[in-house]
Simulated assay, not measured.
Amino acid sequence: MTTPLRTRPTVIQRLAYVVGRPLPPQMQDWVRNDILGPGGVRRYLLRWNVPVIPLLLLFLLIPGRDCKNNGVTLKGDAPP
């Protein structure tokens, strides 16, 4: 007995989809509706931003004053 093909993602597949993983080809209609349907722009931007946010948060760990001083020192334009 064969199982019917899924047309909606499971919770795990949906979480993977949000962080950028593709879904199987049989869910193409669901993806199209997700992107083009009501609220699609918000979800599309969320899908793009979720993987990037942790990388951007790492920049908060770098002290601004130290980066500026190091950049000026490396450039050679340190004030007298």
Results as ranks from 00 to 15, higher is better:
residue 50 V to I: 09
residue 14 R to Y: 04
residue 60 L to H: 09
residue 33 N to L: 13
residue 12 I to F: 02
residue 38 P to C: 06
residue 22 P to V: 01
residue 23 L to N: 00
residue 7 T to C: 08
residue 10 T to F: 01
residue 72 V to H: 04
residue 15 L to Q: 02
residue 8 R to S: 05
residue 24 P to F: 03
residue 25 P to D: 06
residue 18 V to Q: 00
residue 53 I to L: 11
residue 57 L to I: 13
residue 12 I to T: 14
residue 14 R to M: 06
residue 44 Y to L: 15
residue 80 P to Y: 08
residue 28 Q to T: 07
residue 79 P to H: 08
residue 53 I to C: 06
residue 49 N to Q: 10
residue 17 Y to R: 02
residue 13 Q to L: 02
residue 59 F to N: 11
residue 9 P to E: 00
residue 9 P to K: 01
residue 62 I to Y: 14
residue 4 P to E: 09
residue 36 L to K: 15
residue 1 M to N: 03
residue 19 V to D: 04
residue 24 P to W: 01
residue 60 L to Y: 11
residue 56 L to Q: 09
residue 48 W to C: 12
residue 60 L to F: 12
residue 49 N to P: 01
residue 37 G to F: 07
residue 76 G to D: 09
residue 57 L to V: 15
residue 69 N to C: 15
residue 70 N to Y: 15
residue 73 T to M: 15
residue 7 T to A: 08
residue 77 D to F: 07
residue 31 V to R: 00
residue 80 P to I: 08
residue 50 V to G: 03
residue 17 Y to T: 02
residue 34 D to P: 00
residue 18 V to E: 01
residue 14 R to N: 05
residue 16 A to R: 01
residue 73 T to K: 14
residue 21 R to H: 03
residue 78 A to Q: 12
residue 69 N to T: 15
residue 6 R to I: 02
residue 50 V to L: 08
residue 41 V to I: 08
residue 16 A to F: 00
residue 46 L to E: 14
residue 24 P to Q: 06
residue 39 G to D: 11
residue 15 L to A: 02
residue 80 P to H: 08
residue 55 L to D: 13
residue 62 I to M: 14
residue 40 G to S: 07
residue 23 L to C: 03
residue 51 P to Y: 02
residue 59 F to R: 11
residue 51 P to L: 01
residue 13 Q to K: 01
residue 7 T to W: 04
residue 19 V to R: 06
residue 25 P to V: 05
residue 33 N to W: 10
residue 47 R to T: 08
residue 38 P to I: 05
residue 62 I to H: 12
residue 72 V to W: 07
residue 32 R to Y: 07
residue 51 P to G: 02
residue 6 R to L: 05
residue 3 T to V: 12
residue 11 V to W: 03
residue 61 L to F: 10
residue 23 L to A: 01
residue 66 D to C: 02
residue 76 G to I: 04
residue 76 G to M: 05
residue 48 W to K: 09
residue 60 L to R: 07
residue 17 Y to S: 01
residue 71 G to E: 12
residue 72 V to L: 06
residue 50 V to P: 00
residue 13 Q to G: 03
residue 54 P to M: 13
residue 7 T to D: 06
residue 58 L to P: 14
residue 66 D to K: 02
residue 58 L to W: 13
residue 28 Q to N: 04
residue 37 G to L: 13
residue 59 F to K: 10
residue 11 V to K: 03
residue 33 N to Q: 14
residue 20 G to A: 11
residue 67 C to K: 10
residue 28 Q to M: 06
residue 31 V to A: 03
residue 42 R to N: 07
residue 3 T to D: 10
residue 49 N to E: 11
residue 76 G to A: 09
residue 1 M to Y: 07
residue 69 N to R: 15
residue 51 P to E: 04
residue 72 V to G: 04
residue 13 Q to E: 11
residue 32 R to W: 10
residue 63 P to Q: 13
residue 46 L to K: 14
residue 29 D to Q: 11
residue 31 V to M: 06
residue 27 M to F: 12
residue 68 K to Y: 13
residue 4 P to D: 10
residue 63 P to D: 14
residue 13 Q to C: 03
residue 63 P to C: 13
residue 38 P to H: 05
residue 63 P to E: 14
residue 58 L to F: 14
residue 55 L to H: 11
residue 13 Q to T: 03
residue 17 Y to E: 00
residue 40 G to Y: 08
residue 29 D to W: 10
residue 57 L to E: 11
residue 19 V to H: 05
residue 75 K to G: 09
residue 34 D to W: 01
residue 74 L to D: 05
residue 65 R to I: 09
residue 46 L to N: 15
residue 61 L to Q: 09
residue 27 M to K: 01
residue 79 P to L: 10
residue 45 L to F: 07
residue 40 G to W: 08
residue 14 R to P: 00
residue 26 Q to E: 12
